[in-house]
């Protein structure tokens, strides 16, 4: 590097990052508080009992967790297929309406989640569709697809189409070309997109509230617990768990995209 950052920039950046992290520290701190119902600062005492309690005494945590995992897995898989198709098509082809289409593909993320949620809710109401796991997946896939699409599209733009042409010219079938040429090119971006989609789905609550009916995903369970706490530190324990679960995919996503770029 030719230059060093000046101190006001360093200060502003550090302050900004601190602002982002103090509440996270609190979440972790209050997983250890001795208070049960509501929090006060500073916490009156510290204990590690809630981790054991959450694990052994709270069977109500598990069904929401499984539901969230199920929804996130299925939505991510669907999103990876749909998003890759869309990215492959829109990265090369030039055709009439392409611009409007690329706008359509970012819409579910660019419009507030409440619109997606409320729109689906209206559709279910009009068509008398009963809420089920699939109604949640329908909503999640819609925005997860965009995340995958964005990641894979960026990769397609950087790779050249010549390899594909060469492969086909040398007599490889379409399937062979896809498996041996296209897939390796996009694999890491696809995985990164999938990871982000998974993390996004796992923590989503705004759209889910509208599409879940009476089902409880993990974030909805957390919301219920925060509003009517039986033992509130348990919520923090679960939150730490959620952070851990989403952190790993994020880390992987980062290294997948970085390695292939450098």
């Amino acid at each position: 590097m030719h230059s060093e950052a000046k101190w006001p920039l360093k200060l502003a950046a550090t302050a900004g990052l601190l602002f982002l992290h103090i509440p996270l520290g609190l979440i972790i701190l209050y997983a250890f508080t001795t208070e049960e119902k509501s929090y006060q600062f500073p916490p009156p005492g510290l204990t590690t009992q809630w981790f054991a309690k959450a694990w052994f005494d709270r069977p109500d945590i598990w069904p929401p967790l499984y539901l969230s995992l199920e929804v996130a897995l299925i939505s991510t898989l669907l999103a990876m297929i749909l998003g890759t198709c869309a990215a492959a098509a829109l990265s090369r082809a030039r055709f009439y309406g392409r611009n409007s289409l690329s706008l359509l593909f970012v819409l579910p993320i660019a419009l507030p989640g409440i619109i997606t949620g409320m729109a689906l809710r209206s559709a279910f109401d009009i068509m008398s569709i009963a809420f089920s796991t699939w109604t949640i997946i329908l909503g999640h896939t819609t925005f997860c697809m965009v995340v995958v699409y964005n990641n894979v599209l960026a990769r397609f733009r950087r790779t050249s189409g010549e390899m594909v042409e060469a492969s086909m010219d040398l007599g490889a079938t379409g399937t062979q070309t896809f498996i041996y040429v296209v897939l390796p090119q996009i694999a890491s971006a696809l995985l990164a997109g999938g990871m982000l989609a998974f993390a996004l789905s796992f923590d989503e609550v705004i759209v889910t509230t509208f599409t879940a009916g009476q089902q409880t995903t993990l974030p909805i369970w957390i919301y219920g617990e925060l509003r009517h706490p039986t033992i509130r530190p348990i919520t923090n324990v679960v939150a730490i768990f959620v952070i851990a679960v989403t952190f790993v995919p994020i880390l992987f996503a980062y290294y997948f995209t970085r390695e292939s770029e450098s």
Binding site: K37, S38, Q40, R227, H228, P229
Partner: peptide, 12 residues
């Protein structure tokens, strides 16, 4: 609107 929130409000 929420009983638990009101408890918090009286406390904090």
């Amino acid at each position: 609107g929420d009983a638990a929130v009101q408890v918090d409000d009286f406390k904090n």
